[in-house]
Simulated scan of single mutants.
Amino acid sequence: MSQTVPVAVPRKGRPLEAVLERLASVADGDDVSEIADSVTSTLRYEKAITKDSQTADRGPYERLADYSDTDDPEAVEYTLLRDDRDGYPRRLVFDSATVSVGEFDLRLIGREEPFRSLRTHEFALGFDSADLVLEEVVELQPEGVGSLAEINARINPTDTDVAVATGLGDTVYHTLMATPALLDGADLDRAFVADYTGPLCISPRYERLVSAVLGTDATDGIEFVYPTEAAEEEAAIADVGLGVYLTVTGSTARDHGLVLGENLFPSETVLMENTAETGPAAERLKTLLTEPAIETELRVD
């Protein structure tokens, strides 16, 4: 008989897709792959509706009733949340599903920030963006963090029992960007930032993350500034001269005349464990989920 293990997962976007792809890669048969494809296509469609790039012929409650099979407790279910964009439009997101992986039935439970659910000991295992770990618990030190492998060494065990087990390979990077005029022929890397004094444009929520990634020595003398709501991040960085932003191809940055510099840190979905809650079953499951290496589509949600 399979053992049911609850696992916290993101509700939408690139991180959830990376989780579903990883589970499909280790599961026997095509059942998990079919669930992954269905959830991914449904949520991409719902995202398009929320962003007004597609029009629905039914209301959100009708779509929600159609997507969720409430008669089967193990089927995929969705829920309706308020998006945080202007006007707070409603958005359908993932709620739960049960998938069979090896000896386990994984009960995937959607959470807005799974990392925090692990911190409060609701789950032994969960998936979330590595960014949130840096924003929440990684200690700020003079030297910066450059890889996932360095994260656990920067987590004070008296602050949290959560540790990072592995990344899922859906890597986009926090990347340095600057105007050619500001660089004046210099290389755009951590050393440049360490010698720089002035404004650095970042997304508002990333001040602590960028401080952890660059290190407090490099950010000494830097003033963090943020894009206005009406400006694209790359356009705001071009106005300031120097910034850090997520990038896959860098084409938008180049369109704004920016030079792409060092990739500072991978913004990757990670498998996390609460070490105080991890028993033998969770350890076996963690081993199963961390062994394969897969390629995932690079997208910024």
Rank of each mutant, 00 (worst) to 15 (best):
V5E: 11
P10G: 07
R11Q: 13
R14Y: 12
L16D: 10
A18M: 03
R22N: 11
A24W: 03
S25H: 02
D30T: 12
T40S: 13
R44I: 03
I49Y: 09
D57G: 05
R58A: 14
R58L: 14
F94P: 03
V101D: 04
D105N: 09
L106F: 01
L108T: 03
G110F: 05
F115Y: 13
A124R: 15
L125R: 10
L148Y: 11
L148E: 03
R154C: 13
N156D: 14
T160K: 12
V162H: 02
A163I: 01
M177S: 06
D184I: 03
G185L: 09
V193Y: 12
D195L: 10
Y196H: 10
I202N: 14
P204L: 01
Y206T: 11
V210L: 04
L214T: 01
L214R: 14
T216P: 11
D217S: 14
F224C: 07
V225L: 09
E229T: 02
E232G: 10
A236G: 03
Y245R: 06
Y245V: 07
T252W: 02
G257P: 14
L258P: 12
P266I: 08
S267K: 13
A276W: 08
T278F: 13
A282W: 13
L288M: 05
A293S: 14
T296H: 06
R299G: 00
